[in-house]
Design a protein around this nucleic acid. Sequence first.
DNA 1: GTGAAAGCGCTAACAC
DNA 2: GTGTTAGCGCTTTCAC
Lengths: 343, 343
Amino acid sequence: MKQEKPKLVTLQEVAKHAGVSQTTASLAIRGKLNISEATRQKVFASMQNLGYVYDRGAANLRSKGASSTVGLIIPDLSNPFYTELLIGIHQELNQLGQTVILGTTFDSATVQDRLVSTILEHRVAGIIFFVVPGSRREPLDRIRRLGIPVVLINRNLSEGHCDYVGIDNVTGGRSAVEHLVRKGHRRIAFLGGVSQLSSWHGRTEGYVSGLLAAGLDVDESLIIEGPMTRESGHVLIEKILALPTPPTAVLCYNDIIAIGAMMKLKELGLTPGYDMGIVGFDDIPEASIFSPRLTTVSSFPRRIGTHAVRLLHERIEGLDSEPRSVVLQPELIVRESCSHKNL
Amino acid sequence: MKQEKPKLVTLQEVAKHAGVSQTTASLAIRGKLNISEATRQKVFASMQNLGYVYDRGAANLRSKGASSTVGLIIPDLSNPFYTELLIGIHQELNQLGQTVILGTTFDSATVQDRLVSTILEHRVAGIIFFVVPGSRREPLDRIRRLGIPVVLINRNLSEGHCDYVGIDNVTGGRSAVEHLVRKGHRRIAFLGGVSQLSSWHGRTEGYVSGLLAAGLDVDESLIIEGPMTRESGHVLIEKILALPTPPTAVLCYNDIIAIGAMMKLKELGLTPGYDMGIVGFDDIPEASIFSPRLTTVSSFPRRIGTHAVRLLHERIEGLDSEPRSVVLQPELIVRESCSHKNL
DNA sequence: GTGAAAGCGCTAACAC
DNA sequence: GTGTTAGCGCTTTCAC
């Protein structure tokens, strides 16, 4: 830590050292073809010698070409669902030689606005955007106005009118309910999530349609909104239990909530699955680790990430078509959390 | 997606629009004092009007000042321990207005080298570095030679001679063994991790010293190395079970391995905790969710992240002192996975 | 308080 | 194949 910030070696110095012009050095470094093998060697030798480090910022400023960074905005890192998504995105992006600038909103619109600004100031090549609940179009428009490609993930913005990748929430919600009905449940609640989210609408719509298809009534009091956290699961399941006629099963907005609910059930001396059927959504690693193992609807976060990067990359490469949507089909993962005692 | 990349608004245009010089506009935007309130207002109005977006890259190129990005190199995102670490780092960095460039090595030295290069090319202000097992000093030196501050996390490099934050692995390992001994265990294995890691040495050293302090022999065949994954846990516990005289308890290098081991135990019809005592290391969220709840040594990933950012920030601000180390004391979290049937 | 001019490290024209 | 020149968008002297 003793040395002062040493002056950085510039391309000019490399060129001088190699006895060529700066242009030649630049071309050599970037592996352009029209450079003789001999000069290329010389330039590389000088680079090594002087300890040259390429300055992407400067290059980028001059070339106005696609920068090599991509902005990623997600709500939260403590939910494994987002982590899985991040892994998918990250892997794919690395393969393309792009680096990730990461921002987490914690589902706050204010933070989201700030993050968008920062990311924009970094002149990213594109943005993968998991919007905050109830987000207005404005942040999205700001990005689009600058001509920066965006792909929206999982939560769509009405009239967002841009590339989107997510899962079929309606089908997911519906298949969960169908499973519960097959298991003999007749009174089923929907727990957690907030109505500002397109994904919430999809999942509840599937829930309702599953109920109706089975000839069951929809009881509005059985749909309870709440944050997407473990703690929320505790609270929500207690509310449900306190109802005059509690349901025999609950479908949760996501696995985090489902696990929170199951933990509270255990705490109350009840057995999840036996005393109360539970289905989650996402299939995070915890789902298969918890006891009882959680029946859930898989939403393939890694694959979503992969698709998002592909769509974005095509845009960055200049694709100019109508907005595209990739909607993955969810899959019901049947495990142990749904066999009620009385059924 | 229809519009072509629109020409970006520059500071010059803002200045012209506001009827001031570019210098004045620049000073106004950065909130320097020697600008009258009236001009400041004018400039900001013009910014809004024209939809100006500050270009950090350009600013940075000219000023050679601290860039506003920090590089973060971690092994893997699928282990919640790293996620927690990332959360801690991220939160703290956001508060300082720094953005994160993220790289994951998957414990590969090759990937690590490539990542270091990329991050360096982005002219980061500093790097938080979780080195790969068996990493040589070379990547670290490359960074240091450029005068870029680094703080090492959890895994120290012998002679790294730079800022470091981690936990006291020796004490952690030792307290785990002491707990196991108190529970009546006399034959205890150490599972997983690789000997290229300073943290592995610390934990095994603690393990050995705990054994010796209790007057027990150290059986080298009970220390088995292995990758830090769930799958590795499966494999390792089977190896242990196949021994002529299996131990009654195992201390695992980390929680991931411990959980993998417990899952395999269940699969084999054995009850973790009852048939085999298990202690983990890290205290990831899964540890308290698994059944039986895992007794483990907490290593406070978020706090490590926070400390790392603080150390790094001070260096970025110009602190020029001898390398500093922050070593956090781990804490034994006693839960349910250690009461053997015969003890 | 404010302005004019120079230049950070690089690439893109265009010449040769 | 290689060199010359100009300039990306900003901050920084240094005048006034």
